[in-house]
């Protein structure tokens, strides 16, 4: 069985984004970019399934700028076998991404498609579910545990009240939550090996997908700033204030 893992190049988790003064977006010039953390978890899960002998081959795909090759190389260094970049400088919305991934899946024929639950730039949390809808496949979103059982996969999901387990027929779509695993480091020897793994480059036109955006961003602004309040000297003063608020 093959696994397909889409990965996105996004602003690094540790960088605080700055909104551009003209309200056109977030300033990404000279900002450190990395693989979306949830996608890293997705790659790790695929690699673990491969190490367990349940997956034979891992294909990673990214839709984004030429620099996204670095992100794909990072996935290859973690253990993916081959990579595909659908190169575009445009910002592609989740719906168009899902359509392209559907086309890619038609070529790769994966048994599992594992995606991050959301990208930490647009925070949409849509692509996996949309892909499942477009392909009419079952979906196990926000996964904290994935167990392959023959032609089915059992997925434990993080839901608001706790955990929920569902059983899906394969092929299936899985989106990862934080606790699914802890991604490994790209080790120095694996970075060297990754250089020799295949990385193919295509364009959205190769898949005939309309990438015109459906949403127009009118403005991007800073969130309202919360002002710091007062510091109290001791517990007694804190209690007095709580009482004044009617809390205690």
């Amino acid at each position: 069985m093959k696994a397909l893992v889409p990965v996105k190049r996004v602003i690094d988790y540790n960088v605080k984004p700055r909104v551009k003064a003209d309200g056109s977006g977030v300033d990404l010039a000279n900002v450190k970019m990395s693989m979306n953390p949830f996608d890293e978890i997705a790659v790790e899960e695929a690699v673990r399934l491969k190490e367990a002998g349940q997956i034979d081959e891992i294909v990673v795909v990214s839709i984004g700028p030429a620099k996204a090759q670095e992100t794909l190389r990072a996935a290859l260094a973690m253990g993916a076998d081959s990579a595909l970049l659908i190169e575009t400088e445009e910002a592609i919305e989740p719906l168009a991404v899902a359509k392209m991934l559907k086309a890619v899946s038609g070529e790769v024929e994966p048994g599992l498609i594992i995606l991050g639950k959301q990208a930490i730039d647009d925070d949409s949390n849509q692509t996996g579910q949309m892909l499942a809808g477009l392909m009419n496949l079952p979906q196990g979103t926000f996964a904290s545990k994935v167990e392959l059982e023959g032609d089915h996969v059992r997925v434990t999901r993080e839901v608001d009240g706790g955990l929920e387990t569902v059983r899906l027929s394969t092929p299936a779509i899985i989106t990862t939550d934080l606790r699914l695993n802890e991604p490994r480091y790209a080790s120095l020897p694996n970075i060297m090996k990754a250089k020799k793994k295949p990385l193919e480059i295509k364009t959205p036109a190769d898949y005939g997908v309309d990438i015109a955006p459906r949403l127009k961003t009118l403005n991007v602004s800073e969130p309202p700033v919360r002002q710091a309040g007062v510091k109290v000297a001791d517990v007694d003063e804190l209690i007095a204030r709580l009482k004044a608020m009617g809390v205690a």
């Binding site: 602003i11 605080k16 984004p17 909104v19 977030v26 930490i120 730039d121 647009d122 925070d123 961003t217 009118l218 403005n219 991007v220 602004s221 800073e222 969130p223």
Partner: peptide, 9 residues
């Protein structure tokens, strides 16, 4: 967007 560091319209 961006973990609430920006608000998009």
């Amino acid at each position: 967007i961006y973990a609430g560091n920006a608000i998009a319209t």
